[in-house]
Design a protein around this nucleic acid. Structure first.
Ligand SMILES: [Zn+2]
Ligand SMILES: [Zn+2]
Ligand SMILES: [Zn+2]
Ligand SMILES: [Zn+2]
Lengths: 143, 143
DNA sequence: GCGCGATATGTTATGACATTACGCTATCGA
DNA sequence: TCGATAGCGTAATGTCATAACATATCGCGC
């Protein structure tokens, strides 16, 4: 509706509210994915009291491409790929270590292309893609 | 209630227990993914009372490749691809319609290969892969 | 048949994850 | 000033999943 000339459509990463900033910082400092309740616990001292405060912040961060939800874990990570919030990215994929919980984010253009091709052939209007690999990372295998 | 399971014609399932059979049948009859609690509700008349009875059956069905868990939905579908329980399958992918809930299972060897290649390059010991597409199916778009 | 391990089952209680509903406040532009 | 939009705080509730424990059943060597 309100459709004025508008500046640009890329998001300003630093337009974050206090809660969003707190949640993003928490994710950035974490070495493994955090559940919403994990995040909440870490932010009690900052005044957060209810899950919804975290979920609302996460929703916005994910919208802006600053964080991701890992469906197979019911947990969240901060984005590790500048392309995700910059320009059109390939679909993000995540390799999740079963041992340490370490998560590696990557994008494979060929995978993205093949999935898009399947969607095109079958008339499926693709909106969102989840790709999650489970296994043991190189580091944990060495140890 | 007698167990008349001597003659298993067809290469359908292996020897399933009563609960596993009930759950599989329920999934087969469903047109959309079902949550464990959905399944439980449908099987109250058969004597099932607790979530765990369903989860245990699902666990076995998934082990045998007869059903799949959709991580982004916290729900379950029966397998629609004979290759999943027959031979070495490519990684299964699922296109989930946001509208009707319809799920389409497919496998793209190239996608499987690319992900395996990434794992190989980075030393990641791949155990399990989740690929889920969200969007609107052709049928719903037409309507 | 008997003993025994492996597998499946039934029940209760609890834990973990996520959302609905309501009300308040700040901001911004018509 | 008014109404729309967005964010925030809180309580209650809804949804998904497992722990812990007790029984039952099957297969098989003896
Ligand atoms: Zn990213
Ligand atoms: Zn690891
Ligand atoms: Zn399958
Ligand atoms: Zn559809």
């Amino acid at each position: 509706m309100a459709h004025s000339h508008e500046a640009h459509h890329h998001e300003r990463p630093r337009d974050l509210t206090r809660n969003q900033e707190l949640v993003l910082t928490t994710l950035n400092n974490a070495e493994a994915p955090l559940s919403a309740y994990d995040i909440l616990d870490k932010l009690r001292d900052e005044g957060l009291r209810a899950p919804l405060q975290v979920y609302r912040a996460l929703e916005k961060l994910i919208e802006h491409g600053l964080a991701h939800r890992l469906e197979s874990l019911n947990a969240f990570v901060c984005c590790a790929d500048a392309n995700c919030h910059g320009r059109a990215s390939g679909t993000a994929a995540f390799a999740i270590c079963s041992n340490g919980g370490r998560v590696d984010e990557f994008a494979d253009p060929e995978v993205t292309a093949r999935l898009a091709a399947w969607a095109g052939e079958t008339g499926f209007a693709l909106e969102r893609t989840t790709i999650e690999l489970r296994g043991r990372c190189a580091e944990c295998r060495a140890a």
